[in-house]
Design a binder for these strands. Structure first.
Lengths: 158, 158
DNA sequence: CCGAATTTGCATGCACCTTGCGTCGCAAAC
DNA sequence: GTTTGCGACGCAAGGTGCATGCAAATTCGG
């Protein structure tokens, strides 16, 4: 596995909190020089430990008022069908996350939509008509208790 | 709602793709000057349309091999109990997302863990013993088809 | 204990960011 | 129709941050 020491962990922790930290700020928080932080950061990016930087936009401010989890069962479990579904999911921007799970439903999607009509459109005009899909059941998010993409790095020492 | 024009949308789209874009790079892609991008970006941050910037870390590279969805039913539906659960969820770093949904289960959590033992610990030593929790059912992610936090901005013109 | 390799801090040249300033265009008031 | 006020724009300059070369310090194996 990729070498990550205590300095790296501090840097990663700081950067997943604030992705625009200056090398100097980073240096101050982890206890290294700015040049060293620059070098280490470049290494972490090179090794794909840091896979990218993203601005986090407010879904509320931009009018995305509906989040939904959608459970999808495929028509058949053939590899061909699975591939078709995978392609569909990649293509639809409203679907932020898609997983296959142990248990009942084949797939779970998380979708972000402007309103309930958007959800209806997605379910009835995109998912349901698709040849790979057999059954769809959606649950609407009533309350967001927590929403982050930060990894619990405290336990990590590769 | 907050004024967001076509320039802003282009900037937001670019920034949620690459959060470390330079104002000059931004200027080149949206067709404005760098100074103007700087000003608009500051305004978007001020208005909390851009709520932050984050480094995206590779869970694989850092050894987080298990993702799980956990359905939780509370012992009672009292506000007091809900608040206790909310606090618990905030405190536990392994829980990245937590929602209450329409439908059967009270809450759904998404957790990131180092291994199955980590999941077991979370379920049996953190969630189950907590006074607010009555029932827990976890599903393990077998495959990640898609995982992004980008909003589908193409449709947005507030 | 010594030498090689790695890591670090410092200095520097270059790129970038931000702010002030003058200009432009639009819209309301006259 | 003209004027006036306002907001947005680009340009330029001063300050800041970044990345690379280099030498000192540290680590590690023999």
């Amino acid at each position: 596995m990729i070498p990550v020491d205590a300095f790296d962990l501090k840097m990663l922790t700081a950067l997943q909190e604030d992705g625009r930290l200056t090398n100097q700020q980073l240096a101050d928080t982890v206890g290294l020089s700015a040049s060293q932080c620059s070098r280490r950061r470049m290494r972490l990016e090179e090794e794909n430990v840091i896979s990218g930087y993203h601005a986090d936009l407010s879904s509320d401010a931009l009018g995305f008022n509906v989040i939904a989890f959608i459970q999808v069962q495929l028509a058949t479990h053939s590899p061909d069908n699975a591939k078709k579904f995978r392609t569909l999911v990649q293509r639809v921007d409203e679907v932020q996350e898609a997983y296959s799970l142990t248990g009942d439903a084949d797939y779970v999607l998380k979708a972000v939509l402007r309103d309930l009509k958007g959800l209806s459109d997605l379910v009835n005009n995109v998912l349901m008509p698709h040849q790979s899909v057999a059954h769809v059941r959606s649950s609407i998010v009533l309350d967001r208790l927590k929403e982050t993409s930060k990894l619990p790095l405290k336990s990590a020492l590769a």
